[in-house]
C-alpha cells in the first residue's frame, strides 16, 4: 500500500510541477504580452470591418464597389459575417473605450 502511495506521489509531483510552471508562464504572458496581442487582434478587426464595408456596402446603402467585384469578394467575406454583425450591433459605451 505504501509503495503504491509512493508511486502515486511520484507520478503526482511532475504533474503538480507542470501545473505550477504553466501557471507561472500564464501570469508572465498575461503581464507582458496579453494586452499587445489583444490590441493586435483589435487592429485586425478594424481592418476586416473595412473589408466588410467594401464588400457588403450595398447592404448598408453605401455602394462602395460595383456589384460584380462585390460578388467576386463575397466568398472571402462570408466566414466573417456573424462576427461582423455582432460587432456592428453591439452598443459601445465610453467606458468600453479604456484601451
Amino acid at each position: 500500500m505504501s509503495v503504491m502511495r509512493g508511486a502515486e506521489k511520484k507520478e503526482g509531483e511532475p504533474k503538480k510541477e507542470r501545473e505550477i510552471i504553466k501557471a507561472a508562464k500564464g501570469v508572465m504572458y498575461g503581464m507582458a504580452l496579453h494586452g499587445m496581442v489583444t490590441y493586435a487582434l483589435r487592429l485586425r478587426m478594424h481592418m476586416e470591418n473595412l473589408f466588410m464595408l467594401i464588400t457588403m456596402g450595398d447592404m448598408l446603402g453605401v455602394p462602395v464597389l460595383p456589384p460584380y467585384y462585390s460578388l467576386r469578394l463575397l466568398p472571402y467575406a462570408v466566414p466573417y459575417l456573424k462576427t461582423w454583425k455582432q460587432t456592428l450591433l453591439r452598443d459601445r459605451d465610453i467606458t468600453d473605450s479604456l484601451y
Binding site: G26, V27, Y29, G30, M31, A32, H34
Partner: peptide, 12 residues
C-alpha cells in the same frame, strides 16, 4: 482566456 493569463494581465 486562461485564468492565470487573466490574473497577470488584470494585475498589471
Amino acid at each position: 482566456s486562461n485564468r492565470y493569463v487573466m490574473l497577470g494581465w488584470h494585475w498589471k
